[in-house]
Computed example of a mutant assay.
Amino acid sequence: MSSPCDPKYASVGDVGAALMVVDSRIKALHSGTTADDPEHRALVEQYVASLGPEGADALLDGACTLIYMFMRWLRVVHEDLGKDVMEYVVPTLVATMRMMPKTFRPEVIPTMAALVIAAGTDLSPSLWRQQYGEWTEPELNALEATTVLLAEHINRVAGDTDFATRMVSEAISRMEEDGEEDDQG
């Protein structure tokens, strides 16, 4: 039976823009810039504001697509090791969220965990979230941070600080190449 939250029904969104935000945050973390860095935050906010309402929605869908892609990769890696991704990733992620009260207000932690769990069970995080109405302001910051935490977790598992970004960039490139071949063929 197909679910209304099946990823095939979801908008992919602007994965490139979402990846750019995540990559800039990861680079800032590795350079010692804090999450409260006003200059970096202002640049991200200026960029998001320049997108307009439709672009902002596409960015949100793109972030959810990243969560889906990251959890799919983590699920495959864990299954190859005979482990359950939910058992190993979700508790660690939630514990990290709880240690970051400025970024993750307590009331958004269940939502962020549910987005990760939805993706880990092969459901679209954006369609799962959509059933509960519009995104709230506290969820937006937490969504960005959740995506960054997952990317950083993948980077640690892979032993490469750019692995998650490169993985998604390569997937986008392959999709674009396949699209060009379809257009020409």
Rank of each mutant, 00 (worst) to 15 (best):
L51E: 09
L51H: 08
L51K: 10
P53N: 10
E54R: 14
E54I: 08
G55D: 04
G55N: 12
G55F: 04
G55Y: 05
G55W: 03
A56D: 13
A56Y: 13
A56P: 02
D57I: 14
D57Q: 15
A58S: 13
A58I: 04
L59T: 05
L59C: 06
L59E: 10
L60A: 15
L60H: 14
L60G: 15
D61Q: 14
D61R: 15
D61M: 13
D61P: 06
D61A: 15
D61Y: 06
G62Y: 05
G62D: 04
G62A: 09
G62F: 01
A63Y: 04
A63N: 10
A63K: 09
C64D: 09
C64Q: 07
T65N: 12
T65H: 10
T65E: 11
T65C: 13
T65A: 15
L66I: 02
L66V: 02
L66R: 02
I67P: 02
I67C: 03
Y68P: 00
Y68M: 02
Y68Q: 09
Y68H: 12
Y68L: 11
M69S: 11
M69F: 01
M69K: 05
M69I: 07
M69T: 06
F70S: 07
F70V: 04
F70G: 10
F70M: 10
F70A: 13
M71W: 04
M71V: 01
M71N: 05
R72P: 00
R72H: 03
W73M: 04
L74Q: 02
L74F: 00
L74V: 04
R75W: 02
R75L: 05
R75E: 05
V76H: 03
V76Y: 03
V76N: 01
V76Q: 07
V76F: 03
V77Q: 08
V77A: 06
H78R: 07
H78Y: 09
E79D: 15
E79F: 10
E79C: 07
E79Q: 14
E79V: 11
E79P: 01
L81Y: 09
L81Q: 15
L81T: 02
L81N: 06
L81I: 04
G82K: 10
G82P: 03
G82I: 06
G82M: 05
K83S: 14
K83V: 07
K83P: 01
